[in-house]
Design a protein around this nucleic acid. Sequence first.
DNA 1: GCAAAAGTGTTGTCCTTACACCCATGG
DNA 2: CCATGGGTGTAAGGACAACACTTTTGC
Lengths: 220, 220
Amino acid sequence: MQTHFTIDCVIFSFNEGKLQLLLTERNVYPYKDWWALPGFFTEKDEEMEDAVKRILYEHTGLKDIFMEQLGAFAGVKRHPEGRILTVAFSTIVKYEDVRSKIRPITSYMRQAKWFAVDQLPDLAFDHAQIIQQSLQKLKHTINYSTAVYELLPDKFTLTQLQQVYEAILGKTLDKRNFRKKIANAGFLKELPEVQKGVSYRAARLYRFDKRKFQKQTSVM
Amino acid sequence: MQTHFTIDCVIFSFNEGKLQLLLTERNVYPYKDWWALPGFFTEKDEEMEDAVKRILYEHTGLKDIFMEQLGAFAGVKRHPEGRILTVAFSTIVKYEDVRSKIRPITSYMRQAKWFAVDQLPDLAFDHAQIIQQSLQKLKHTINYSTAVYELLPDKFTLTQLQQVYEAILGKTLDKRNFRKKIANAGFLKELPEVQKGVSYRAARLYRFDKRKFQKQTSVM
DNA sequence: GCAAAAGTGTTGTCCTTACACCCATGG
DNA sequence: CCATGGGTGTAAGGACAACACTTTTGC
């Protein structure tokens, strides 16, 4: 049997000390004027991966971003038109890198905007559930993926890094223990620079060393 | 756009010291006479969860089994008829419990049969890939789920338990360390019985205590 | 008595956690 | 000089890995 087939995108970023999520305001029925995950119908005989790329671009203006599959959500009652199967994908982007590029190409969506994950509006369809599941997954994989570093600018301070961990895990961490753990892991490169423009002691800047990270994790 | 929508089931069990997988022999084109994961088309406006139950029953004779979603597999070239999206589900069953029930109801499949996961035949579609991914997931969740205990009979010896771990992880474990870890976890109940019918020292039997397991894990 | 598997302890290393104060800087 | 966040060490407990021999049983 055939079914409608859509893609939804969960796009995380980090700004102002908070985990952020990119949502679009729908300009079409159903759920017109509601906020929703960027997502839409696939086309006939379109590869799923191509559909993800296309829809991501058309709805947010973002390109060349790798998205990981979260899972399929069906449910006859998800949509007034009957069963629509959606496959959700998630990714993480650097806020500064995409800031100027966010802009829906299609007129199906009125605008795309960042929301702090702890201050989301009411969402269309079952998107709140998809987001919950995505956050769950992020929590579990945080230590085994480069996800955290995708959330930060190229050069960052240890406090910023800790904030990202805290935002994702939803709890505060001990500063000394956190730094020991990071130092131990050994895939941060200390830079000869420090923060600028702060009215207190400037913090050391670090960079993530992907090569060293892969060496570590590939042993396991 | 619409797409064909199928379900595939990855069903693990454990017998003769090996991790086993239930496959069906196809009686229809495409891939007639090939071995494949039990799976078929969903029906119009059928809930995904209902489709899983129905297909599992029709193709293997198994009922009342909870299946967990693995993910969606699309791919225009998966199937001669064009894009067919399949959502894979996996589960684990006790070999003894189901032994006599395995039997396809539908004539689309000629027979259902267990194969050791390290001795699988050539498989239809992209089912080999789905199985690989499922095994990966099993490895990762082995310590945080009741999966292992679903694989064993009600009463089992510690050596049997260790064999299951070894089969899933694909490596041998140290007996003393393994027993310490299990004892530490504290959700096995030692029974007053021992093995029977063996020509060497009979091993103590244990039972898995689900209540204690949940207490442990829910704290985290 | 022998074959076959059951059962059992110790040690070192490393990771995790808890916990509090001085330091550097800009204004 | 003060407000603000940056930066640092230690001790205890728990988890993990390495490692080999004795015991029980059926035949």
